[in-house]
Simulated assay, not measured.
Amino acid sequence: MTTTATALLPAVQEAIADALGIDEAEVLPEATLLGDLGAESIDLLDILFRIERVSGVKVTVADIGDLLQGGIPDEEFGDENEVVNDTGLSHLERVLPQFDRAQLAEPLTADGVLGLFTVQNLLDLLTSRTAASAA
C-alpha cells in the first residue's frame, strides 16, 4: 500500500462502517461493498459522501462505473442478455486485481459487476484521485 493509501484506509473504513452501521473491523480491504458488507446503491452514495467529507476528494458512482467498464460501450462489454463477454472480462481482470474469471461459477451479468467492487478498489480509486488532485 502506498503512503497515501495507508493514510486514507482508516477514513475509508470509518466512512463505510458508519454508513452501514457495522463494526470497522468488518471493513477489510478484500471485502466487497455490496456482497460482503451488505451495502445497497443508496449506501454507496452515503459512503462516497462521507469519504469526500473527510478526504476532500470527490469520487462518484459514475467514477466507479467508469473504472469498471473502462469506457467500453455496452454492446462491446456484454452481449444482448447483459452477460459480460470476453472483452469485458479482460478489462475487469486489468482493473480489479482480485478478479479471476476462472473463479466464476456462472456467467457474470452487468448487474453483478458492481458486486465485485471491494474496499481496496475504492481505496485505490480514492488514492489515484488524491494523487491527481495534488499534481
Rank of each mutant, 00 (worst) to 15 (best):
G88H: 13
V119K: 09
S41I: 10
T6D: 12
L96E: 02
D36T: 15
L92W: 10
R101L: 04
G71N: 06
H91N: 05
A7D: 06
Q13C: 02
G70W: 06
I22W: 07
E93L: 04
I16R: 07
A62W: 01
G70P: 04
L108K: 06
A17D: 09
A31G: 01
T130R: 04
G70D: 11
I51F: 00
E26A: 15
G71Y: 02
V61I: 15
H91P: 09
G35P: 01
P10Q: 03
T6L: 14
E82W: 05
D66M: 13
A131Q: 14
M1S: 04
I51T: 12
I22D: 05
E106I: 02
D23K: 10
V27P: 02
D46G: 03
N81F: 06
L67G: 12
G56A: 11
V61H: 01
D63Q: 11
T32S: 15
V119F: 09
A25S: 15
E106R: 14
L45T: 08
D36P: 00
E24T: 11
V59R: 08
V119N: 14
E75S: 01
A19N: 08
L125F: 05
L37C: 06
K58T: 13
T87V: 14
A62I: 08
A39K: 07
K58C: 11
L89R: 11
L89P: 02
V119E: 05
Q120D: 12
A110S: 12
V95R: 11
E40A: 09
D74L: 04
F77S: 06
T109Q: 11
D111C: 05
R101D: 11
T4P: 01
R101H: 09
K58I: 14
E30G: 08
T3W: 02
D100P: 06
L33K: 11
L68E: 05
R53F: 01
G38P: 07
R50I: 00
P10R: 04
L126P: 10
A102Y: 04
A19I: 02
E76L: 14
F77A: 01
S128I: 09
A31R: 13
N85V: 08
T130F: 03
V61N: 10
F117A: 15
Q98L: 12
R50D: 10
L9P: 03
L45Y: 11
R50V: 02
M1C: 00
G88A: 09
L89M: 10
D74S: 01
A17V: 05
P73F: 02
E26C: 12
E14Y: 07
V59Q: 07
G78A: 14
D74F: 01
S41V: 11
T130S: 08
P107G: 07
S41K: 13
L108P: 05
A17L: 10
E40H: 06
D79Q: 09
G115M: 11
A19K: 03
A11G: 01
T87K: 14
L8C: 03
P10E: 04
V61P: 08
V27G: 01
D18Q: 14
I22S: 06
T6I: 03
T3L: 07
P107V: 05
A7S: 09
D111S: 15
L48I: 03
E26V: 02
F117I: 11
G21I: 09
T60C: 09
A135L: 03
D36I: 00
